[in-house]
Amino acid sequence: MKWGVALNVRDEVSETLRKAEVADRGAIDQIWVTDFPTVRYAPAIAAAIAERTQKCRIGVGLISPLLYSSTQISQFMSTLIDTYGDRFDLLIGPGDRSALARVGVSHSIKQMVEYTTSALDTIKSDLSKAGYECSVLLGAQGPVMIKKSLKADGVLLNFSDIEMLHWALNQMGKIPTDFGLGVFPPTYIGNCQDIMDNQSIALSAAMVALGLNSKVSETFGFRDKIDTARSLLKGKKRIDVDIANSIGRDVLKRFALCMANDQLQEYLKVIEGMGISSIVFGPPQGIREKGVELLVKAKQQT
């Protein structure tokens, strides 16, 4: 199982670099540099991380093709590889719809999916024609994107629940042998026992849950709870504890990993058995340096 950690969430560049060095020294396989709606521009941070680390791979994304042109995305990936070598992978996906709307990018969900999949084809083709060794992954959660991900080099699924992962794999049908299956949920590993006791992970899980396709939430029986939370969000504009509480512990747990090391080892065994070969520990794990250290410790115990 390959371990990755998501950085560049809210930090100043110097803090992200410090954490990247901790992760690199601690043999974390890949650092993922998140992009919008976080403040800092991921490709530039990826360059800085490449200057300061030795062994880890560096993932850029999630990058939204609704915010950047396919040409610019191909161009920053090729520039990174030309400068620092074959250390980079790309994760694309439509991105957070409400955050995009705040910066003037408003499309229907259908358009967002179409735009993203078309960009996927263009970027993959541009990079491969130019001979770049760079995996282009798709971030997916709903059935359409999950199916479309087969056109990518791999998928990172945005939830953690075993039943939901089984469902996602069923949606994909026959999966090519060289296809990269991974998960990228909100996480806090180390000293997290109850998701409702850790506000950061509860809010991160709520954010993912609120972005879930209605059909999927219907399938798993939590559509009512998510619809209620969405109504609350319309009034409040930002996700807070009340919204997380309205979704409730049982639902939030399905989107996030909040557990001790030994539970994590068990979880990894199960998903490895399902053919999943990588996990990216999403926020809030990488928000504090302590979180990255806890992750390194967990990796050393595997």
Binding site: E12, V13, S14, F36, R40, Y41, A44, Y68, V103, G104
Partner: peptide
């Protein structure tokens, strides 16, 4: 004209810190 203004603002922050 070829970049989203939010991207320019975020890039300014990033490069200023780098």
């Amino acid at each position: 004209s070829v970049h989203n203004i939010s991207t320019l603002a975020r890039t300014g922050v990033t490069l200023n810190e780098i």
